[in-house]
Design a binder for these strands. Structure first.
Length: 309
DNA sequence: AAGACGAAAGTGGTTGA
DNA sequence: TCAACAACTTTCGTCTT
């Protein structure tokens, strides 16, 4: 795939002798040695590989600008080609030295990213998350690396923290336990790294809304739509009555689902609900008791059920 | 027998002195 | 930094359906 060169002539010596060094991924003038732009093929790297590998389809067709490829958008460039013309010979030498260092730093970052991105890919596929989430995880992780947040921390642990942070940002209801399971990182560490990256990258997340859990749990329990919406109602009213604060959103969702499942005669056991909600039976129990106690209309409906039975 | 219930003791996180 | 505290868990014995 021929990407059009931005220059036909070398801006330095005006020779029409520009070549594209495939291996280094840079365009250089063969006459004077000027490197025009070594990031010219930033996201071309992988394209070329797919391309030359005839018969292989291009998996990434459509979205060339992606953070899920490790060399995208990386690192501050030391200067730009626009600056280059103005420099004296001496400054230019210095410029190249800086550039060299920059490249060395970049490769260190890139190798870290490569590792992290394949891990992210794996996690995303296990959790079956949409691709825009993968993109966001990759973007944030890249930012974390650039800010040096990973230094002194394990890559996997930071990845886990970022994954959880992004899930929270997008209100995608996955528990700490689930993230912990797929990443193999201790639950506490995931939470710690979540806080760490949130704090340092200014990621603001709201407390988890129990509503977000309800529909997922409901579908895992194969409850019908009206049962689910009953549970949603219960949660909403509970939130309005301010009896949800300080309690685990999973527990609230679980308790509401338990009640709803009884009201609509789609009984699920406390154990079943506890399992999908990732809490104990005791919590389901306490939660639904609390809900009934504080929401008068519920006790009426429960009475109704009992009367019918 | 399965499910629901509740007591008791333990754990991890938050808060406030 | 430490202690108190509330929420949640684990475990287990008992009651209900």
């Amino acid at each position: 795939m021929a990407k059009d060169l931005q220059y036909k002539k070398c801006p330095e010596c005006a020779a029409e002798n520009l070549t594209w060094n495939k291996d280094k991924g840079e365009v250089a003038c063969k006459t004077c040695g000027l490197v025009l732009d070594d990031k010219l093929f930033d996201f071309g790297q992988e394209w070329r590989e797919f391309d030359s590998d005839s018969g292989q389809s291009q998996r990434r067709t459509g979205a060339p600008l992606t953070y899920t490829q490790e060399d995208r958008g990386l690192g501050t460039e030391v200067g730009t080609k626009a600056d280059l013309y103005k420099l004296s010979k001496k400054d230019k030498d210095r410029f190249y030295r800086l550039r060299l260092w920059q490249r060395r730093v970049s490769t260190a970052i890139e190798s870290n990213l490569r590792l992290a991105l394949s891990e992210i890919k794996r996690i995303v596929s296990v959790l079956t998350l949409p691709s825009y989430v993968e993109e966001e995880i990759a973007r944030i992780y890249t930012e974390a690396v650039q800010r040096g947040l990973v230094r002194g921390h394990s890559t996997e642990a930071v990845v886990a923290g970022v994954v959880y942070a992004v899930l929270r940002m997008y209100d995608i209801p996955r528990t700490l336990n689930e993230v912990s399971d797929v990443t193999g990182i201790d639950k506490k560490k995931v939470a710690k790294n979540f806080k760490y990256v949130s704090r340092n990258l200014n990621i603001r997340t709201l407390p988890i809304d129990p509503l977000n859990y309800v529909s997922r749990f409901a579908s895992e329990l194969q409850l019908r739509a009206h049962t689910q919406s009953k549970a949603l109602d219960i949660v909403q009213i509970a939130m309005k009555e301010e009896i949800t604060s300080g309690r685990s959103p999973k527990g609230i969702a679980a308790g509401a689902l338990y009640i709803a499942s009884r009201i609509h005669n789609e009984k699920r056991t406390q154990a079943e609900i506890a399992k999908v909600a990732d809490v104990t039976e005791v919590t389901v129990r306490n939660s639904y008791k609390e809900l009934i106690e504080n929401l008068d209309f519920l006790s009426d409906e429960i009475e109704q059920i009992k009367a019918d039975a």
